[in-house]
Design a protein around this nucleic acid. Structure first.
Lengths: 231, 231
DNA sequence: GCAAAAGTGTTGGTTGTACACCCATGG
DNA sequence: CCATGGGTGTACAACCAACACTTTTGC
């Protein structure tokens, strides 16, 4: 993030940085912004900024994301605080890293105020970032890999209605493995978390797949009665 | 935590609070301190304090824990930041919650500077705490319940050498269930994470159990080759 | 009819669950 | 000799991995 432009109303010692994952065409992506001003102008960074005195930390993260990229209403969660004494060059700043999952195609990126550009990068092909942002990104990716196997967060990376192949490719991209189609389907079928939309794909040059949606409410119910999401 | 006694060298807007779990006689406990000074004097709270400019966030947590309770060299990990605007009465303070697992019997509690008392409480029988500390505690307990099933962190709550029944009772206490002895043992046997110490319990009024220890190095090795700890 | 993806079935080995049982020791 | 916990065995059901196979559709 840039140094606080005017020191109006922000907490000096705290910043926020967001690791935002997107998914498109079988590739897992990460959203970066290019800074327009400050000492890090021209360099790529995680989208982030400062917290004001009137808002909660989580509200600040939502606000920043929206103002930097135009993205709102998404899965957003705290990751951890990065607080090495010298991680920020000008002064002591602890940053709260968030991570988010979005469906890449549902948003067109609108670079905000202090960002001259906002762009998706393949998660395996990321440039050098400012400060400790590469480290934060690595941490976020490891976290995602772990989390995706134990909680149904992956659905946030897909459109509301998706085919089973899309879902499988998502998991293959995140976990960096190949999965067996038949077994993958059976496993999901057993969980009862997917609702058949009774619709078919359109404009595909092969047999159209059934579309499904994930119902969070069903998951919450099943979870209360002891169900655990695994792979 | 108390208000910063002298404003020498600390980050004003950030504090640390620790959720510290202990285990003894089949009961899961939580460590609380009673404040000696400040507006919250006489009330129970999570052990915590302030971060200085020269130390990392994680180092600060270690230092605070040691100075408040005498406990050092333990499993300590970030939980999350609690940052509602009005959570702290005097001014805007975001707190970084940590959680820790210790073997209760390995430490005698030494209340430090600003703590007039430090004491273990049954996790199901905790008094009203200052600020949002009850909320932080609840979050920590939920986190522990989840984590313990997917990573071998539970061992940090036991002495270095323990019997299989102790281990089982630990899991029963955390997860609030009963487990089948034979199946529990088989599962652990298969994981190869336990080393038989070739020692037996002493001074018990029944057949002495074999003692085991958990070898973290073996776990790290197995994990690299794809092993996943589950239940 | 061929390519590409949808979608189903089979089979054998591995795990998990629920029990039942015997063993060692101190009081 | 009994209470307490240590420790083992078994049998059935559920599950998983690997692989083969049939179906639908657009070009």
């Amino acid at each position: 993030m840039p140094s606080p432009a005017s020191t109006e109303n922000i907490i000096e010692a705290l910043s926020i940085d967001c690791v935002i994952f997107g998914f498109k065409d079988g590739r897992l992506d990460i959203l970066l912004v290019k800074h327009a001003e400050g000492i890090s102008a021209g360099k790529w960074a995680l989208p982030g900024g400062w917290i004001t005195y009137g808002e909660s930390v989580d509200d600040a993260a939502k606000r920043l994301l929206k103002s930097l990229t135009g993205i709102s209403d998404i899965y957003l969660e705290q990751l951890k605080a990065f607080g090495e004494p010298n991680r920020f060059p000008e002064k002591r700043v602890v940053t709260l890293a968030f991570y988010a999952l979005v469906n890449e195609e549902s948003y067109s990126l609108i670079p905000g105020f202090t960002a001259s550009d906002a762009q998706w990068f393949n998660v395996h092909d990321v440039p050098d970032l400012i400060y400790d942002h590469n480290q934060i990104l690595d941490f976020g990716y490891k976290h995602l890999k772990h989390k995706v196997r134990h909680e149904p967060v992956g659905f946030n990376l897909l459109p509301a209605k998706f085919s089973l192949l899309q879902l499988q490719e998502l998991y293959e991209a995140i976990l960096e493995t190949k999965l067996d189609k038949s077994n993958f389907r059976r496993k999901l079928g057993k969980m009862k978390l997917l609702i058949n939309c009774k619709e078919k794909q359109k404009d595909v040059s092969h047999r159209a797949a059934a579309l499904y949606k994930f119902d969070k409410r069903i998951y919450v119910t099943l979870r209360k009665s002891g169900m655990v999401f695994e792979l």
